[in-house]
């Protein structure tokens, strides 16, 4: 890797009983969007908290922007911006006041403050409401304001921990537009965690974490290619009968069942599907052919869907 901005080596966190993070290694390149995925309890938050200087690692080392997280805490803190999962705005203050406080915490030069506040408010379209108290804002506006705040001190890396959790789908897609706009304009490195795997598709690379370990790390396309082929989902009038038929007559497909849906993974759906439909005697009630998604990748690597909480 040419120019890692974050480099994590043998990072371990052990609590009394459990090993929450097991000697993980990875690097994040400058300017990329790095997606960090994993089910609840996989050790994602623990890892992020250690990278952000909020939690002391048991062992291992982390370097951000050339600074050691253990020795140069303040320099690391000045190099990163964080959008936490939960709201960390002061709702009794106005948007402007929240941003001004942030400037002062991060020692943004006095004569640059107004200009920068204006600049970040423009990015997230909140200039008009900058004098209103944050408690009057909608959930989406608060999120945008937090993103604006995270950018004020021109961080090298922006951490986005579940940035769209609790937002409606429309607001979610808007928020991603802002984030992508930002990436284009500023070239900031982004470290992203999300539950919504479709959102992780925008990442240049993703790491999948499970039970304290990183089990896969690559670009979303490469990961999906690794799975190979197409996914066919179908429901029939009698799934048990259908499964028996598939077992007898169909070859070249990996079969799995989830609820009332049968999943087939095949090399190429084009060659497979026409003969398959003719073969099956049981009437098909629903049929869907698609390319594998990150969800399938996740399923293949961890044996479960990302929503299945495993504490």
């Amino acid at each position: 890797m040419s120019n890692p901005i974050i480099s994590v080596k043998d990072l371990t966190k052990t609590y009394k009983q459990t090993e929450a993070v097991k000697a993980i290694n990875f690097e994040v390149e400058e300017g990329e969007i790095f997606g960090f995925l994993g089910p609840n309890g996989a050790g994602k938050s623990t890892t992020i908290n250690m990278i952000c200087t909020m939690l002391k690692p048991t062992s291992g080392s982390i370097t951000i922007n050339g600074y050691d997280v253990k020795k140069d805490k303040d320099k690391v803190r000045a190099s990163i911006g964080i959008i936490f999962q939960e709201n960390t705005l002061d709702e009794k203050l106005t948007a402007n006041e929240n941003l001004m406080l942030h400037c002062r915490f991060y020692k943004v030069p006095k004569d640059k403050r107004q200009e920068r506040i204006r600049e970040v408010l423009e990015i997230v379209d909140l200039v008009e409401v900058s004098k209103q108290r944050v408690e009057t804002f909608s959930g989406g506006m608060k999120r945008r304001l937090e993103i604006a705040r995270g950018l004020l001190h021109y961080p090298k890396v922006l951490f986005l921990d579940e940035p769209t959790v609790g937002l409606d789908p429309q607001t979610r897609s808007h928020l991603w537009e802002y984030i992508l706009k930002l990436k284009k304009k500023e070239g900031i490195t982004m470290f992203l965690t999300t539950h919504y795997l479709d959102e992780a598709e925008i990442s240049d690379r993703v790491a999948i974490m499970d039970q304290g370990d990183i089990i896969a790390i690559d670009s979303p396309t490469a990961l999906k290619d690794q799975l190979g082929g197409d996914m066919i989902e179908l429901s029939t009038e009698d799934n048990d009968q259908a499964l028996r038929e598939i077992d007898e007559k169909v070859s070249g497909a990996e079969v799995s069942v989830e609820g009332d849906t049968i999943h087939l993974k095949v090399e190429s759906s084009d060659a497979f599907i026409s003969s398959f439909i003719k073969t099956l005697e049981i009437p098909i009630t629903r049929l869907n052919i698609r390319k594998p998604t990150l969800n399938d990748v996740f399923l293949a690597f961890t044996g479960r869907k990302i929503g299945d909480a495993k504490e």
């Binding site: 952000c52 303040d74 803190r77 709702e91 915490f105």
Partner: peptide
């Protein structure tokens, strides 16, 4: 409780 302490603690203020 309201989360703001996180904003303070991750900042480089001593």
């Amino acid at each position: 409780d309201f989360g703001y302490m996180k904003e303070i603690l991750v900042s480089p203020i001593s």
